[in-house]
Design a protein around this nucleic acid. Structure first.
Lengths: 264, 264
DNA sequence: GGGTTACTCAATGTATACACAACCGACTCG
DNA sequence: CGAGTCGGTTGTGTATACATTGAGTAACCC
């Protein structure tokens, strides 16, 4: 594996799992020393991350991890809805039934497990069932990816999955929502199996709207809100930016001479 | 301006305007010698173009300009429809009326000019009116870009505009289609001005469908079709790939270990 | 004669050295 | 006492030298 790939995956993983918090500076020399490769692969990795929108160098000099605010997540889901509804429609049009049949069985098989976990605790903290649920959801995403048979759409979806994984930290995996999501996923699968494009798209839209509501419910609407979740819990080394809750992501895209992707 | 920006814009412009035809090899040393910068900026430019999907290095070693086939254009418009309809909906929701009012006047003002050009020649070959039409369409795109107020969606749209500009070469600018597009654009503007999200999205979908049909009408459905447009008319230096008309863009995305964007 | 293997070479991947530009600090002058 | 300026330092942008890998080719063996 190339050193640039190592640097890219290492940085991307650190950003997605919040080991590098929003606003953390990514100086080339420091990163290259930390990862153990030269500056050249680090530059390429940072370039990829900037294109992906996980890193921005709008502050002129040094690159920083992009913030994750309520407004960011809302904008992200506006794009996600456009992409995933179209993906579901295309998957319903071109699907190969076998993979979705097995997927449906897998989703149906998790009924007992989810119900059992549902009795254990009220606020499960990312235990076994939520991991399994995420794995199943990823399998559904992969099946739709393959079925829709569109490289451009697939690439666009891949671009936003990193952001979604980062935003997923805000989604407390409560069993009620997990069960609801399971029902919604089954509805999507059924629509795809029935080749009902419109229903597949609309079921996806419903699922995404509920998912967004679930995420937003854990974020205070205003910076000085009620939930003090991010009150100076600085875990990283030098980062003091606390997820940038209230700032609107209005990038002055006109002025910046940055090459591409002026993601806030 | 940085050397990497120069290399990026130069290569992108060459690709979009078909001075670099699909399949043309982009060796780093050759490109750096041609443009007059070192290999490092060329590497960054190629990386950006690969992320953008205009260049691929799937052939293992050396990067090549991605092909443009009928199937590619169809897939591209499937993504474009998802993005632009959502953009139109959001623009209708959040628009500032002033820019669209002036835009509507600009579109209405082109009535006489288009009619005049309509009488001059039957098959206008990218004359004045088509250029003006494209400029107006770009202004509409920019207005929607600004009005929708979504950085992620804006970035995704920016990514596919390069591909669209490249595919536009196939769209012969016949006056009938230009006038039809003008009507469709006016319908979109009216819907946005009336804050009718659904109508804005649907009018955009209609426009894109007609635009795709217009482009596809100039491409033979099958490689050995009736139109011998691509019969060994190799204009570039060493490129012998003739727009790859018949090949389906089925990328074996699973096997490729390429970092991102396995655009065909 | 065909296939396989090894060798060569060219192109890419990586590292490092150099140049320039921007921030930060202190010092000095008004 | 404040503000401006000047130098140092840090970090990015670029170029080039070195390492490495993959492809092409030719020779050799079966």
């Amino acid at each position: 594996m190339r050193a640039s790939d190592i640097a890219y995956e290492r940085l991307r993983d650190d950003i997605i799992h919040w080991r590098l918090e929003p606003g953390a500076p990514l100086a080339e020399i420091e990163v290259s020393a930390r990862i153990g490769v030269s500056r050249t692969p680090v530059r390429e990795a940072l370039s990829r991350l900037i294109n992906e929108g996980l890193v921005s160098n709008n502050s002129g000099r040094t690159a920083v991890v992009t913030p994750v605010s309520r407004a960011h997540i809302e904008q992200l889901f506006e794009l996600r809805e456009a992409l995933e509804t179209q993906a579901a429609r295309l998957a319903a049009r071109r699907r190969d039934s076998s993979s979705f049949e097995s997927l449906k069985e897998a989703f149906l098989a998790t009924t007992d497990a989810a119900a059992a976990t549902n009795n254990v605790g009220t606020a499960a903290e990312s235990g076994d069932s939520s991991d399994a649920s995420y794995l199943l959801a990823d399998r559904l995403d992969a099946a739709i990816d393959e079925a829709m048979d569109n490289s451009y759409l697939r690439s666009a979806l891949k671009d936003i999955r990193g952001h979604l994984a980062r935003a997923r930290r805000h989604a407390h995996a409560n069993p009620i929502r997990l069960e609801q999501a399971r029902t919604e996923h089954l509805l999507i699968i059924d629509a795809i199996l029935r080749r009902d494009e419109m229903l597949a798209g609309q079921a996806t839209a419903v699922h995404l709207r509920n998912s967004l509501d679930n995420i937003l419910a854990t974020i205070p609407p205003l910076p000085g809100g009620s939930a003090p979740t991010t009150s100076t819990t600085s875990t990283a080394s030098t980062t003091n930016t606390e997820t940038n809750t209230g700032t609107t992501p209005e990038t002055n895209a006109a002025a910046s001479a940055s090459p591409r992707k002026d993601i806030p």
